[in-house]
Simulated assay, not measured.
Amino acid sequence: MNISILNTIENVDWSRMKEIYHSVGWKKHNEEKIKKIFTLSNVVTIAYDKDKIVGFGRAMSDGVFNAAIYDVVIEDTYQHKGIGQQIIGDLLAQLKEISCVHLVATTGNEEFYRKVGFSKIKTGMARYLNPALTEEYLE
């Protein structure tokens, strides 16, 4: 498998992006929302197998001090093939001058992020509007 990485949303197939979100159970993502979040993200990485999108990630950064990585998602049938590591590596390469990069791992994926260089933070805090997410992620 020859995965290529692009850092643009130009000519992206938004319906394919939705399929990938849905393949991992993120069913609330529709094409309009996906296009909005990627358009507003200033760092993007999209992985292709030939001309087919198989995974992606995005980040938002102030360009100087801080960044946050969001939505590292690999189509279910392409998982465990190193694509997630490539996406994280590419995002971090784009953020190489940023001193603090945060992310929130989805439940069960903490070990993956440890392996690619992330550590738990002592002072992290969040608020969620969705009670189910509050229950899942907050102490």
Rank of each mutant, 00 (worst) to 15 (best):
K35F: 07
A132R: 09
G82C: 11
H80F: 11
N42E: 08
Q79T: 10
S61D: 02
Y113H: 08
Y78F: 07
K81Q: 15
E97D: 15
V73W: 06
Q94K: 14
D62C: 10
L129A: 12
K115D: 12
L133R: 08
S99W: 12
Y137H: 06
K50D: 15
I87L: 08
E32S: 14
I88S: 05
N66V: 14
E75L: 06
T107I: 13
K81F: 02
V64W: 12
G84F: 03
C100M: 14
E32N: 13
E32Y: 08
I98R: 01
R58S: 11
F118A: 03
I46A: 11
F38S: 06
A47P: 05
L40S: 14
G89N: 13
Y128A: 13
K115I: 07
Q94W: 00
G57N: 02
T123A: 03
L95S: 02
D90T: 07
A93M: 11
F38D: 02
T39I: 06
L40K: 14
F38T: 02
K27N: 15
T134F: 06
L92Y: 02
E111Q: 11
N130A: 05
V104E: 05
W26T: 07
K81M: 15
D76N: 15
V54T: 06
W26S: 00
A132H: 13
Q86N: 04
Y78W: 10
G89Y: 08
D76Q: 12
D49I: 01
Y70T: 04
I83C: 00
V116Q: 08
D51C: 07
N130M: 09
E31Q: 15
G84N: 09
F56C: 11
L95I: 12
T107R: 10
K115T: 12
T134W: 11
E97A: 14
L133Q: 07
R114H: 13
V64Y: 13
C100G: 06
G84A: 14
T39H: 15
C100P: 01
G82A: 06
Q86E: 11
L129W: 12
I87P: 04
A105P: 02
D49C: 00
E31P: 10
A132C: 01
E97W: 11
S119D: 06
L133W: 05
D90F: 00
R58G: 03
I53V: 15
S99L: 09
H80P: 03
T123L: 00
K28P: 01
T123C: 01
K50W: 05
K36V: 13
R114Q: 09
V43R: 08
A93W: 14
C100R: 09
C100T: 10
H80K: 14
E97S: 11
T107K: 09
G57F: 02
K122T: 09
Y70Q: 10
E111M: 05
V43Y: 11
M60D: 04
Y78T: 02
R127H: 08
V116C: 08
V116W: 10
